[in-house]
Design a protein around this nucleic acid. Structure first.
Lengths: 330, 330
DNA sequence: CTGTTAGCGCCTTCAA
DNA sequence: TTGAAGGCGCTAACAG
């Protein structure tokens, strides 16, 4: 049984042409007569030929693969983060049907510089950077064009991100418009670019609505939501709306509110950010600013595939509000 | 600048040996004198040499890569499923430090047979099957040894799974032991092997505790938890404990309980299954049977790397109970 | 439009 | 213990 895998040579022989011609047909070159083209494809079917990716990679000096690179710090802990899965999902949706594959690199924070250099050296079609700080992204970008950063990055590094500020603004406006009178925020880390955008959006919209911005320092994690909310409740017992830096933070807010005896949305309205599946799974279902992660990952992947990335490839995607029960009018 | 990447040839020249010898050193062959070995490693450092994976793959006819294969149906929707990320995390923890990489294939349910064949044909070091039904896994296994299924599979297919029945038993015992008097269950799909194990565990433990098993049909999703709970509440308003087929289901249970005005854990105790991050993020934090996903994925990966898989490679891992607030004594 | 001819970088016999 | 030499399967000039 175990017949050896057919090679281009075999295909060529079966089609009565040379290996080179067969190659041309298969790689979709144009300088081939329709007749031979048909013969070759026929032979391919016949033999069940499939190109050997390794050989091809060696010959053209580039592997048909998209590298997903994630820096895994305590905040973005892959393995407990929906964001990451959404990225994968977005990439693969584009790669489906292509014979490009996806390779994943998760890099521990401490060894990031070294490992990033390793990856940059061996990148295939291109790399998608997730949670890579601007400085490191810039370094990577210097060693390898064909890169896109998911989320804001250093200037000159191609990137795509959600419109964090606009999303936050929409959230706050929504809360005031539906009758809330004192909307506070639990922010992310002060040095996180996404968090910064959301924070400034919150402040802007608050002022715009004639209110003083009130926020607690937090982070993209459950605990931050809990403690931040506790602080805010202590200082502002009359608050009736909370904007959380992300869904995970919002889950913490939810817990703290619950423990303080406040009901959502009756006593306090809540809006998260991300619109991950956490939002729909929470009780009550959570209003959240939708970050189109899959879409952004897909766009980035497409750009990498077509090679259209450049320092100017900078995209900011809209982040529309997804309204659910947690912000229903009181 | 752009100096060409050093090759084995270069290393050999720098070390004053032949390409072949350099290769031997680098691949860790033993028939080399200590002196030359040192010289070669020195040259490697000097030149910053890194083997070309594509070339190596071509030469030895196998790519240094672990293939993660996930069938993406509505239940396991990658992109909204913590389980999947945990698998990735487990695989990569083993691969770190190796120059083996991970490739991901997500396959839509309908085209599964074809695509699985494609993957089987091009597998590198080995494949890890996730959510692949026994029949398809068997087919894959027939085309390619070097495979492990995560979760129960067809006989003869190497596999590793959590002890679903034992986990369920522990959950039920825990509930009765802590004072509950009527523990019901929201099950998974009747044809899902994990769900079957948990279901039988629940029944066994119920009978053992002197109670009649009472369960609602459900599934591994939020909605199933909601409607299942509603049915159960209608038929058994006096229930005071619920065992849910998985954490997601449990989130649905939580919602339904909330909406019915029951408090957790005061009125009803709840135990989920998986101990995914959902459990810790829920309000109240959820008691859950821990499925050691990362650990299982890591074991499978290790087995693939060492090539010790065989039809007899069958593991069942313990699934200990992780106790949190949702099942605190009333 | 098609065939010929070199490699791509590495591993692996086969001799020495 | 080491070197020489032949592929692995494919692509990419270069002729014809």
């Amino acid at each position: 049984m175990e017949a050896k895998k057919p090679t281009l040579e075999d295909v060529g022989r079966a089609a009565g042409v040379s290996r080179a011609t067969a190659s041309r047909v298969i790689t979709g070159a144009h300088r081939v007569s329709t007749k031979t083209r048909n013969r070759v494809w026929h032979a391919v079917e016949e033999l069940g030929y499939h190109p050997d990716l390794a050989a091809r990679a060696l010959a053209k000096g580039r592997t048909e693969v998209i590298d997903l690179v994630v820096i895994d710090d305590d905040a973005t802990r892959v393995g407990s983060n929906p964001y990451y899965s959404r990225v994968v999902s977005g990439i693969l949706s584009v790669l489906a049907g292509t014979d490009t594959q996806m390779r994943t690199h998760v890099i521990d924070e401490p060894e990031a510089p070294t490992r990033l250099d390793d990856v940059a050296r061996t990148v295939g079609v291109g790399a998608l950077l997730v949670n890579v700080p601007p400085a490191l992204a810039a370094r990577f970008s210097a060693r390898c064009d064909r890169v896109v950063s998911l989320g804001h990055s250093a200037p000159g590094v191609p990137s795509i991100e959600a419109d964090n500020a606009a999303g936050a603004i929409a959230a706050v406006e929504h809360l005031y418009r539906t009758g809330r009178r004192k909307v506070v925020a639990v922010h992310g880390k002060p040095n996180n670019s996404c968090a910064i955008g959301r924070r400034s959006g919150y402040s802007l919209a608050s002022v715009e609505a004639g209110h003083e911005p009130i926020g607690a320092e937090g982070g993209f994690c459950l605990e931050a939501g809990v403690t931040g909310t506790q602080e805010l409740l202590a200082a502002h017992p009359d608050l009736d709306g909370i904007f959380a830096a992300c869904d995970l933070t919002a889950m913490g807010v939810l817990r703290a509110l619950n423990e303080s005896g406040r009901r959502v949305p009756d006593d306090v309205a809540l809006v998260g950010f991300d619109d991950s599946f956490l939002a729909s799974v929470a009780t009550p279902a959570m209003t959240s600013v939708r970050q189109p992660v899959e879409h952004m990952a897909a766009m980035a992947t497409r750009a990498l595939l077509t090679g259209e990335t450049s320092a100017h490839w900078q995209h900011v995607e809209p982040a529309p509000l997804q309204i659910r029960r947690s912000s229903a009018a009181a």
